[in-house]
Design a protein around this nucleic acid. Structure first.
Lengths: 215, 215
DNA sequence: TTGCAAAACGGGGTGGTCCTCCATATCGTA
DNA sequence: TACGATATGGAGGACCACCCCGTTTTGCAA
């Protein structure tokens, strides 16, 4: 079911039993390795730990990116589902923020996720399937559109901007020894700049006057 | 003395002529290589291109980080000098923002700078000299303190937060094929959250509201 | 100028990475 | 059961960071 995940290989239903078994083993090993060493984990070691040859790993996942996407596919789907839920929220502004923070939280607790989400169809290797990047972009785009219609965000902000922001922060926090709490703090900080005129997300509409006037 | 840059090696006054010559060559080659391939440039190739053996490179710069710091040392100093200038500004709030954007601009136009600034004394290898990280933190801290005294920034924001934000964005923009303009746009967006009028997303209870008497 | 010890050098080795070929083993089916 | 398609993994090539150690260069002092 869910394992239609295959983001890299013919990988359809017609997969030999042993192939699927190895694929799952690789994925499990990769999950562990990535959690421990981040997105730069050694592929060789993943293969070793999965008990398969390196060639097998490469056949299943032609690129590191493909492997990462498979590893994170389920998590990304959870985020997309969450976006769908939130799209029905009566408060599109805070729905968007809630979702972005959820993305940040996931990225913070899954080393490498941020990096994976960042790299989109960049290298043109995406033709094989929907990448994490586009999945997330699509899901978030919906939320942003609604938030914009509700005038809860600046009109000049794109979903790509927001996700880049979220991922950038997660990535940065990942490199340092910062906890999830700090990541969220930074994120909150950054997201405050997204509202138009400083309309508080959670509270009554407060106008942020001249804005720069103070400084 | 500017070239006291040596962030990695005894590197003092008593340096043999050939050693200094090689050091400079390596630095020049590294500058080119990093500009072209980013912070992950091959050290071997840098040594080759500099016309020295790889051992020599490693003697002068025991780690990649040490090399990067030496490469960016001058640029970081420029930023620190700018911070000193801006510290005298009558408008501490915009001085801080101006400086942060300058940091962002530098990071955007120097591949690897952001990553270099990010990694602080992290690995404990810093005992050899003042790292880019701490130099920048110190310089920016001054600006932030003044801005805070002028109530131009939230009191709960640390300079490390702000720099992390700036660097995160630069890093993200660096990975994608984004131009400097986009980087600045994202940065401006994020920095808007720093001004005190904004109500924190998470803390509705927080009554800093008094500050915005306007409108 | 010459001699010499200390300093710097760099070739080559070690052990690691990613990735590819192709002879072999395994699977699913007729 | 037999066979062809499919999947496998070890060996090997190209690259990398980093280190050991015999050799060369330098600067100073006689």
């Amino acid at each position: 079911m869910t394992q239609g995940s295959a983001a890299s290989v013919p990988a359809g239903r017609s997969m030999r039993a042993d192939a699927r078994r190895n694929r799952d083993r690789i994925l499990a090993a990769a999950e562990t390795a990535v959690a421990e060493h981040g997105a730069e984990a050694s592929l060789e070691e993943i293969a070793r730990h999965a008990g398969v040859g390196s060639a097998t790993l490469h056949r299943h996942f032609p690129s590191r990116q493909a492997l990462l996407e498979a590893v994170f596919h389920d998590r990304v789907e959870i985020l997309c589902a969450k976006a769908r839920d939130l799209a029905a929220s009566p408060d599109p502004g805070s729905a968007l923020v809630t979702w972005l923070r959820a993305v940040g939280a996931h990225a913070a607790s899954n080393r490498g996720l941020a990096a994976s989400l960042m790299r989109g169809a960049r290298d043109g290797d995406s033709t094989l399937g929907t990448t994490c990047h586009t999945m997330i972009i699509d899901s978030g785009g919906e939320l942003l559109t609604r938030a914009r219609q509700a005038h809860a965000v600046r009109p000049d902000v794109a979903i790509a901007d927001l996700l880049k922001l979220v991922n950038a922060i997660s990535l940065a926090a990942e490199q340092e020894t910062a906890g999830a709490a700090e990541t969220d703090r930074l994120l909150t900080l950054a997201l405050d700049g997204v509202r138009p005129q400083g309309v508080p997300v959670t509270g009554p509409a407060r106008t942020r006057g001249g804005g720069s006037r103070n400084t």
